[in-house]
Design a protein around this nucleic acid. Sequence first.
DNA 1: CTTGTTTGTTACCGACAGGTTACATACTTT
DNA 2: AAAGTATGTAACCTGTCGGTAACAAACAAG
Lengths: 195, 195
Amino acid sequence: MTTKDRNQTERRILDAVGTIVETEGFEAVGVNAVASASGVSKVLIYRYFGSIEQLLAKYLEDNDFWLNTEFPIQQYDNVKEFSKAVFRAYIDMLRKSPALRKLYRWELTTNNPAIAGLRERRERTAMDIINAVSRQSGQDIDQVAGISTLITGSVSYLCILAENCAVYNSLEINSDSGWNKLLKTIDFMFDKIFD
Amino acid sequence: MTTKDRNQTERRILDAVGTIVETEGFEAVGVNAVASASGVSKVLIYRYFGSIEQLLAKYLEDNDFWLNTEFPIQQYDNVKEFSKAVFRAYIDMLRKSPALRKLYRWELTTNNPAIAGLRERRERTAMDIINAVSRQSGQDIDQVAGISTLITGSVSYLCILAENCAVYNSLEINSDSGWNKLLKTIDFMFDKIFD
DNA sequence: CTTGTTTGTTACCGACAGGTTACATACTTT
DNA sequence: AAAGTATGTAACCTGTCGGTAACAAACAAG
């Protein structure tokens, strides 16, 4: 360490968490790994953050995934096109962000207060959109929730899987071409459903 | 160990793998864990199976997930009902089997020859069905593959997630009621698509 | 200048992981 | 009965994990 600067040290630690998360995932975030990746002795991790759990909580809080993306519902008068756009945004977000993929993957094997908090807020955001779409389209809310679940669920799954598997049902889930096919299917579905 | 019986010892080891997989998942299958769970010294694991990878390969080979479920395509003259039935079977299978859920979860974080082999065979089975449905229904094959991907992908995701999370888009993914709603949505979708 | 506090490093501890060596005991074969 | 082989265990080795103690250096306040 060159100078004595607590703020900078904390930044280094959090940055190290970021790179570990992006490359190896949350599962790999341990005291020793963060210490060596940040070039900071691990005692400081405990001193400044308390524990790895709290460090991860801070990391999640800093880059608050998903929550900051606001969907301006009113602006769309065409519910069908709005729906398509929402899922397009969802796909882009997940395909672009390694950290977000790792977060979704981590959630499948873990449960802790930080994750529970994220899920709650995500649930609220999602249900707000679903409610709005149901109201504006006249579709049954369970039906809208179901369709939304089918799409976001599979998109989440495929984006995680794509890091270890190139093809699923003949779709190249690693390339734009595969995802464009899936987008066409989603559009097709909405065209059939919203008559 | 009471008597000297290699067959019985191998059985004990494989059974221990099974219980560990079902309760904690493939990630937890290590030499020490299997040794203590089976009551067998770990040297024998190496002697009889070579390595943990090979032991897991044997375990996967023994209970070959997914592959043994044959779908008699010809028997259905109604393609729509056949499709619904396939996905119903898929959901039941995944919801009933903890080991299968753990396998799907493991696949999201790992890649090895055993998994690659499974994927290949699964891919072939799936594409056989998709081809048949496309031919018999007249739907574009990419469209059928897309729909199938949306459903199986989300079902896989939700079944894995349900072990750590009770609600997704207001659906109770831990209970039959939530899944029945989702089944209704799938049926609804097929009714709209197959006109 | 001296005293106390913040920031930092090194070195260590116990627990447990994967993996191997050396040895004991049973069974088979001649 | 004797020799060889298959089956089993205990003990150990190295490495890494999370976690802590002890100490060094910079800085602030009197």
